[in-house]
Structure formats: C-alpha cells, structure tokens
C-alpha cells in the first residue's frame, strides 16, 4: 500500500494507525515561530468509530489503508451473517455482526447500503439516509388525533422502534431518517 506524507493529509484520506484502518477528519498545520512544524490530525478509527487526536512531525509518512466505500444491495441474513451484493458485478460479501452493528435495525431486503471494505473484507455498513419501512406494532390511534401534540412508539418490520404521530396505524409505510432515528413522513403506496 502507498505511503502518505503529512503534506498529503486531507479530510477523507484513509491511513493505518496502530494496525487499525482510520480516516482523517481534519489536519491542521502547526508551526511555531522559528521552530519545528507539526501536523495535528483528528482521526476516526473506522473499526471502532472512535475519534482520536494525533500529532505527526511535518513530512513524516504513514502507511495508507486499503479502504474503499462501495454501494451494495442487502440480500438476506442467514442467522449468522448478513449478505450483500455489488449490483454491477453480482459479487457477494458476507458481513458479521461487528460490521453490521447498529445498521441492523434499518436493513431491509434490496435496500442499497454503503459498505466500507478493508482489504476486501466488510468493515462497516451504513444504511441509506432514509428508509421506508412498514409499521409492525403500535397502539391504535384515536379519532381526532392530528399531527400536533405527543406521539407514540411504533415497532417497525425490522425491529427498530421510532416515535410516530398518533394518527399512524399498523401496516402503514413510513419514512425514517436513519441518522437520527426520527420519523419523517407517511409513504403513500
């Protein structure tokens, strides 16, 4: 894998740090008066999601990480692995529960997700920003309920629980923002 010098550090660059693949979030060039230049870098560990801060001497080189983002279609879960497919090549990947993590509650067959591959193995899965899911379970609404005021919990077909307005009924499709886990609207079939 290529090496990158601190001069090439910019947001989005993937590097190896302490044997883990990481993405650079921010790189600040620091140079005191007549002194040594440093690069102060904020980095996200792509395995754990944790953000750390590291300092490099200016000009130092770091190993690049073989990390790519790829759009993939979710196929099915066999009980142990979640299977995905690259739509163009029909190539399939199986991701374990570490890689799927919290995305599991938004995964619906055939949805297109973003998969991060490290050395060609699934590292993490990001669901689409918006998903459309059916309501599996919620309290019945009462006549006269409007969008204003309150709300109620609803369990979706994938098992996720979101807060919905009182007028939403079992069986209806709703649109949810997966980044915040919030209800957006009802979806007309």
């Amino acid at each position: 894998m290529a090496k990158y010098s601190t001069n090439e550090f910019k947001a989005g660059l993937k590097i190896m740090l302490d044997q883990d693949p990481c993405a650079i979030i921010e790189n600040e060039f620091i140079k005191p008066g007549k002194g040594q230049a440093f690069s102060r870098v904020r980095i996200r560990n792509l395995k754990t999601g944790r953000v750390i801060e590291r300092t490099f001497k200016s000009g130092e080189s770091v190993e690049g990480a073989d990390v790519i983002d790829m759009e993939m279609q979710y196929l099915y879960n066999d009980g142990e692995f979640w299977h995905f497919m690259v739509p163009d090549t029909f190539e399939q990947y199986q991701a374990d529960s570490n890689a799927v993590a919290d995305a599991v509650k938004w995964l619906k067959d055939q949805d297109i997700c973003t998969m991060i591959l490290w050395n060609d193995a699934p590292l993490s899965v990001t669901p689409p920003n918006f998903v459309e899911l059916a309501i599996a379970e919620t309290d019945p609404g009462l006549k006269g309920d409007t969008s204003g005021g309150g709300g109620k919990p609803a369990t979706l077909e994938t098992g996720a629980v979101v807060r919905v307005p009182l007028f939403v009924q079992i069986g209806e499709m709703i649109r949810v923002d997966t980044r915040t886990g919030e209800y957006v609207s009802r979806v007309k079939e």
């Binding site: 620091i30 005191p32 002194g35 040594q36 440093f38 590291r54 300092t55 490099f56 001497k57």
Partner: peptide, 26 residues
C-alpha cells in the same frame, strides 16, 4: 494528553519546547 510528544521529540530539547508551547502554553 500529548503523549505523542514522547516519541516525536525524543531528546531534542528545542522540539519539546516547540511542542509543549504550541499545545499547552499558546
């Protein structure tokens, strides 16, 4: 919280000063 300095600066007094000054004094 600036433990990177230990490996970067080693026994270079001037670099230690630059590092600590930039991060903690400035």
């Amino acid at each position: 919280n600036i433990k990177d300095a230990v490996s970067l600066c080693g026994n270079d007094h001037s670099m230690w000063l630059d590092f600590i000054f930039s991060y903690k004094v400035q």
